[in-house]
Simulated assay, not measured.
Amino acid sequence: MDATVGRRERKKAATRQALADAALRLFTEHGYDRVTVRDVAEAADVSTTTLLKHFPSKEALVFDQETDREADLVAAVRDRAPDRSVPGALRAYVEDAQLRAPDADPRFRAFADLVRDTPALSEYARRMWTRHQEALAHAVADATGAEPDDPRCAALARFTLEASALARDSADPARALDAAFDLLEHGWQAG
């Protein structure tokens, strides 16, 4: 019985990955707006119904790892070094996700360009990213001993997520991240 369940789950995961890979390939080759859900299903050799069981929308085909991102954000706070501040740990995570990841994998650059150049995907990406605010705020509260509903934790979570968007949209992402996280770490210094 366990082997059957394991096999089914592996098959589902393989189908899901084939769909995500086909979608990214087609979207980068032909443009997001020129590719239909049916095109992606055909490229992955599955029915449109099967595709929609795995991905509820066309945009969702592009963002397949969102659960991992939330876990990584929470881990950045929870597993930080004892001498590292919460904003410092979040800064390191966002720098790695926004500045280093694109350079490490050429497929990520194609993905980032696709999202940036497609308004529907840019908006979807922003909604998907900012939905991690509550989990991140709870992680900050746990890590600092604050009350779960402390508005400072919610603010730090929101501003962290917005700093990432600020960097992504900036001509100089590193400078934008430095400015945002310096402000989060040290507060406003008029000058």
Results as ranks from 00 to 15, higher is better:
Asp172Gln: 10
Lys53Asn: 12
Pro106Val: 13
Val77Met: 06
Val46Lys: 03
Arg126Lys: 11
Thr48Val: 14
Ala125Phe: 11
Ala89Leu: 03
Met128Thr: 13
Ala18Gln: 10
Ala22Val: 05
Arg168Glu: 09
Thr28Glu: 04
Leu90Cys: 06
Leu156Met: 14
Asp72Val: 01
Arg25Ala: 13
Arg175Leu: 15
Pro102Ala: 10
Ala165Leu: 15
Phe159Cys: 13
Leu114Val: 07
Ala13Val: 02
Leu19Phe: 06
Gly88Thr: 05
Phe159Ser: 11
Arg126Asn: 03
Ser85Arg: 06
Arg126Gln: 08
Asp79Phe: 00
Tyr32His: 10
Ala179Arg: 08
Glu9Trp: 06
Thr50Asn: 07
Leu24Lys: 02
Glu59Pro: 03
Arg38Lys: 12
Val40Thr: 08
Ala157Leu: 10
Val46Phe: 01
Ala13Asn: 09
Arg16Asp: 00
Asp117Lys: 06
Val74Ser: 11
Leu90Gln: 01
Ala89Asn: 04
Pro173Cys: 03
Leu183Thr: 13
His138Arg: 15
Gln189Ser: 14
Asp117Leu: 10
Val46Thr: 13
Thr144Gln: 14
Val5Ile: 15
Cys153Ser: 15
Ala112Asp: 14
Val62Met: 06
Leu73Ala: 03
Asp64Ala: 14
Leu177Lys: 10
Pro148Val: 07
Thr67Glu: 15
Ala18Gly: 09
Arg152Phe: 13
Thr48Glu: 13
Ala43Glu: 09
Pro56Asn: 10
Thr130Ile: 08
Asp45Met: 05
Asp68Leu: 12
Ala14Asn: 08
Ala41Asn: 10
Cys153Arg: 04
Glu162Phe: 03
Glu95His: 09
Ala75Phe: 09
Thr49Met: 11
Ser170Arg: 01
Pro173Arg: 05
Ser164Gln: 13
Leu99Pro: 02
Thr15Ile: 15
Glu59Arg: 05
Val35His: 01
Asp103Phe: 00
Trp129Phe: 10
Ala3Val: 10
Ala171Thr: 14
Ser122His: 09
Gly187Gln: 01
Arg34Ser: 15
Met1Asp: 04
Val46Leu: 04
Pro106Ala: 12
Arg69Asn: 06
Leu73Asp: 04
Asp83Ala: 15
Glu9Leu: 15
Leu136Cys: 08
Tyr124Gln: 04
Leu19Lys: 01
Leu90Glu: 02
Gln17Ile: 04
Leu184Cys: 07
Gly191Ser: 12
Thr15Tyr: 02
Tyr124Arg: 12
Ala146Val: 00
Tyr124Thr: 12
Val35Thr: 08
Ala139Thr: 04
Val62Arg: 06
Ala97Val: 08
His138Asp: 15
Thr130Gly: 00
Asp169Ser: 15
Asp72Arg: 14
Val37Ile: 09
Asp96Thr: 12
Asp113Ala: 14
Ala3Trp: 11
Arg107His: 12
Ala146Cys: 01
